[in-house]
Write a protein that binds this DNA or RNA. Structure first.
Lengths: 191, 191
DNA sequence: CGCGACGTTGATTTGCCTCAACGATTGTGG
DNA sequence: CCACAATCGTTGAGGCAAATCAACGTCGCG
């Protein structure tokens, strides 16, 4: 069974006909690790649904430091929402962490999808609601937890990521430097 | 013209009939400053649309320290999205900053609204998309800017809030202690 | 093999916190 | 209308978590 269809059906039921429409509006693609799918100055036109591999989004600040905004694993969506909805140049990079197979959904086709299969608008509403909750929780964690607590929480929440994501990206996601992250890890091992 | 209807019409057009349905599903209410509209352990059942006054949402961490998640002014929505969609006990407080008049929209009525006026589901989708963008931007700011930069950015973005919100709440929103905030302000004045 | 990216470790610095004391303002009951 | 407490913002001294800078080992890969 198709991963995307399965994912959508967790929230709204689709007829066979509707499933076909969904699949007709996405385009499969393959990307090698380190491919840049989007960079600032470009305008995001695509939402990526990951079938296999991993992608991350990140910004680069005025000092040239990268800040990982999110990791996306199979069965997740990723895009630069800001650029996608405002049609202004992106503020983020989208970059492949490990060789990836994705469905590409263009904004145009996404809007077509809302018209042809209105249920999918509900699906995306629910998806985005969850995204807000996740973002809020991460914000709260950044404001109220120490780096160490954020790290152990990350390990609990995404145990698989620890093994397959370069450490410096995890450090960046947590919100610390790679050096401090390394020391922190060593400190935790002693316990 | 009604503020809520006006707000919705910025994104989707409503017939007079549909406008009536919207207004029939919300309930007006008044609250005095410092009223707690929601607290952890309760389950959020209501989305508030502010007609007048101000409301804030915040969490309290394990050390008893408050962290302001968001301020809501007239023409904005506020709720604990986590509790609302998961139907689990809230993680946030919702509290009135200055005497407020609001429309209350219960979850039940919100779902009814989606059925009776499907367009409104699009309206909320768009609204929530913007919310994701705002949350991401704030996260990036917390990761990449100093407290001073976050403060000046806040002043640029919400000049009116500076005057009408107690300083300690702004400090909390920025992510610093009231003491540090005070010193920071004094330092900026010297420039 | 040799280069470059990655992770580790140490010395030092710094942004922000903690604690404590002190005016100013608010509000509340007598 | 005043006295008093409570809350708020300010200021200072000292402390700590995390950043910075620098040096070094390791590994994968052209």
């Amino acid at each position: 069974m198709d991963l995307l269809i399965e994912n959508i059906q967790k929230h709204v039921a689709l007829t066979t006909e509707e499933q076909k429409i969904v699949l007709s509006l996405v385009e499969e693609a393959n990307y090698k690790s380190k491919t840049i799918l989007l960079k600032p100055s470009e305008i995001a036109d695509t939402t990526f649904f990951i079938l296999d591999g991993m992608i991350r989004s990140y910004t680069v600040d005025t000092n040239g430091v990268e800040h990982v905004i999110s990791f996306a694993a199979p069965n997740w969506f990723i895009t630069d929402m800001y650029s996608l909805i405002s049609k202004k140049p992106a503020q983020q990079y989208l970059s492949v962490i490990s060789d990836a197979t994705v469905y590409k959904l263009s904004r145009e086709n996404q809007e077509k999808l809302y018209e042809l299969v209105p249920k999918t608008e509900r699906f995306f509403r629910i998806l985005i609601e969850k995204s807000v909750v996740a973002h809020q929780q991460r914000l709260i964690d950044n404001l109220s937890l120490t780096a160490e607590d954020r790290y152990t929480k990350f390990c609990d929440k995404y145990p698989k990521f620890i093994q397959c994501i370069p450490q410096k990206y995890i450090a960046s996601y947590i919100g610390v430097t790679p050096e401090f992250f390394s020391k922190m890890k060593a400190r935790l091992l002693k316990k």
